[in-house]
Amino acid sequence: MALFLNIFIGGLLIGGIYSLVSMGLSLQYGVARVFNIAHGEFMMFGAFVTYWLQSLGVNPLIPTIVIAPLFFVVGFILYRTVFTGIRVRSPNPGVFESNGMLAAFGLYFIVQNIAVLIWGSTPYAFAYLNTSFGIGPSDFRVNRLVAAAFAVGIGLIFYLFLTSTRSGKAIRAAAQDSATAGLMGVDINFVLALCFGFGAAMAGIAGTLICICYPISTTMGLQYTVIATVIITLGGLGSIPGSFIGGLIIGIVYTAVNYWQPGLAVAACYVIFIILLLVRPKGIMGR
C-alpha cells in the first residue's frame, strides 16, 4: 500500500512537471513543425536564471514573471529569423522538418555551450521548501507539490487561452491544417512564431520548477528533451490535454521503474516509445 501510494502520488507530482516541459515541445512540433531538440536547453537556461536570481535572495517562483516573457520573445524572434528562413527555402514540409530539426541541433549546441561557458559543467542545487508532508504511510516533498500545482495551473491557463481567445483559435486552426488556415486569413507565419515563442516560454517556466525540485547542470537538457518527446508521442502532437495525460503516465512509469531499478528508468521510457510508434504512432489524443 505504501509502495503503491509512493509510486502513484510521487509519479503524479513528477508527471505534472514533465507535462509542462512537454507541452512546450508539443506546441513547437505539433503546430510550428519544428522538432526543437534545443527545447531542453531552453529549460536548462530557465533553471539557471532562476538559480542565479534565487542566489540573490529572490523567491525562486518569482523569476517566472521575467522568464516567461523573455523566453517568449527569444523564441518568437528565433522562429521569425532562422526557422522561417528554412521554411521558405524548403520545397516541401518533409524537407522543412528535417532541416528544421538539424538547425535545432545547431541551436542545442550553441545554447548549451554558452551556458557551459557561463556556469561551467558542475551541478548546482539549493534547498527550497525541503520538507515533507504525509499521506497515509507515505511522505512526499513539499517543493514537488508546489511545482506540480504551478505546472497544472499554467497548463490550465494556456488551455483556456487556446479555447477561448482569437489567437488561441488561430493556433488551433494552424495546428489542424496550416495551409487552409493561411487561406482563411490567418497570418500563418505570425501564428507559428507565436507557438514557438509559447513553447520557449513554457520551457523557461519548466526550468524554474525543475530548479526548485532537482539539482541542475548545464548538460541536463537533452535528457528532458528525450522524456518530453516520449510524452508528446504518447499524448498526441499539439494536444495540451494529451501532454498532461502523457506526462502523468510517464511520471508514474518513471517513478515505478525508479523504485525497481533506477538504472533502467530512461530505458523504460524508450521501450514505451518503441511500442507506441509500432502500435499507435498518433498517440492517445492524436487525430
Binding site: 532562422v82 545547431g106 549546441f109
Partner: peptide, 17 residues
C-alpha cells in the same frame, strides 16, 4: 573545446540556411 561546440552549432545553422 566549448568554442568548438559553439562553432559546430553556428556552422550547422549557417550551412542549412
Amino acid at each position: 573545446n566549448n568554442y568548438y561546440m559553439l562553432i559546430f552549432g553556428s556552422i550547422l545553422i549557417a550551412t542549412i540556411l
